[in-house]
Design a protein around this nucleic acid. Structure first.
Lengths: 211, 211
DNA sequence: ACCTGAACACCGTTCAAGT
DNA sequence: ACCTGAACACCGTTCAAGT
């Protein structure tokens, strides 16, 4: 397919396309070579090996996660907007994000978001170590939530299903609770509710008690 | 090695041992056969194929995560004890937990914990849909946090390191904040601080505002 | 019912050889 | 500087054949 001489960028582009469509497991050196119309071994000249090819893809993804622009009137609202933006961007690149995660670069990918959080926590009046704790707590919560959510979506058919797990025996005196837990969660609503609750507590509450 | 006839349980035990020591990628059918002193193909008779062998290991792990016994005087403290217990148990089985996660069974593994949380949220006076939201928010936060923490630990050498990312330019008027963010986080402290803040807000705060 | 080796279709990677 | 095919050491899985 490559009418001109093969290029590292061409290799990366083809690899990214394979990963976006079918996930990282579908990215084999041989399929990639077929896609590019070259010998398998040419790829090695340009990218070293499969591992560093994946590294390069991950690096690209990290770069693509651009700066974050918080919107809203209060710090809480602006932090919520950051959370919402992150959720959207991550959901658009599930396979690549998973690779970033596997490579342990999630933290670095979230640096722009972290800086935005610092700004908002500051605006809310927190300083020093307390502000750092708040930033990290929110960041961990957002990232963690999204990992769990992704996991739920990839879930095979659960057996037993959540609805079977929550028959009324589990909470005999609160059938509405059992019914609510038997229903599937609304992830976006739960996400915003959780972030709001945590942020509210961190920004306005008293300092947490020592353990 | 198997002096007597090969058994499905023997296969599972040997496989679990390989995974615990070197992770799921090290579990190849050929190595497993060598470990058991049988032909590769014998294993197929007992467990079907590699995929269902992994499924069986995951199933075992889910069963092993026994019931949770909350301790403490207040609901908040008892929920914190659940969080601490989960953290410890997960950290003892990193590879197997990762496999559970990859298979989308994390939720099911956490059912005993979820039931404990229901009990505590109830004790704190929440009912119905509001209680269900609180349970799920806490559960998602705990699981999510542990996934992020695991990721951090597996992290290769970060480049640029967190400490380089946080030079004083990022927060010019708060050098203590920059210093705090440049230091590595204390995961257990941050974990308990986060859970405490979220739980406090969910159990005692006003209902969160609509979005 | 249980086990076997041979064979198949896949991998990633190395290397000497080409231009 | 860039590309090639052959070869190597691995995979998971199928299958006909043994007992």
């Amino acid at each position: 397919m490559a009418r001109t001489t093969l290029t590292r960028d061409e290799v990366l582009a083809a690899a990214a396309s394979l990963v976006k469509q079918h996930g990282p497991a579908a990215l084999t050196m041989r399929k990639l070579a077929a896609e590019l119309g070259t010998a398998v071994t040419s790829i090695y000249w340009h990218v070293g090996n499969r591992e560093s090819l994946l590294d390069a893809l991950v690096e690209r993804t990290v770069q693509e996660m651009g700066a974050i622009r918080p919107v809203g009137r209060t710090p809480v609202e602006r932090i919520l907007s950051v959370a919402r933006t992150l959720r959207r961007e991550l959901r658009e690149r599930p396979h690549l994000i998973a690779m970033v995660h596997e490579r342990g670069l999630t933290e670095r990918m979230f640096l722009p978001a972290q800086q935005a959080l610092v700004h908002e926590v500051h605006a809310a009046g927190l300083r020093g170590a307390r502000a750092a704790d708040a930033v990290r707590a929110v960041q961990f919560q957002i990232v963690g939530y999204l990992l769990v959510e992704r996991n739920r979506e990839r879930s095979p058919v659960q057996s037993p299903a959540e609805s079977e797990l929550w028959d009324p025996r589990a909470a005999p005196d609160d059938p509405e609770l059992a019914r609510a837990l038997a229903r599937p969660a609304d992830p976006e609503r739960l996400f915003l509710l959780s972030v709001r609750a945590l942020v509210h507590s961190l920004l306005t509450g008293p300092p947490p008690a020592p353990r």
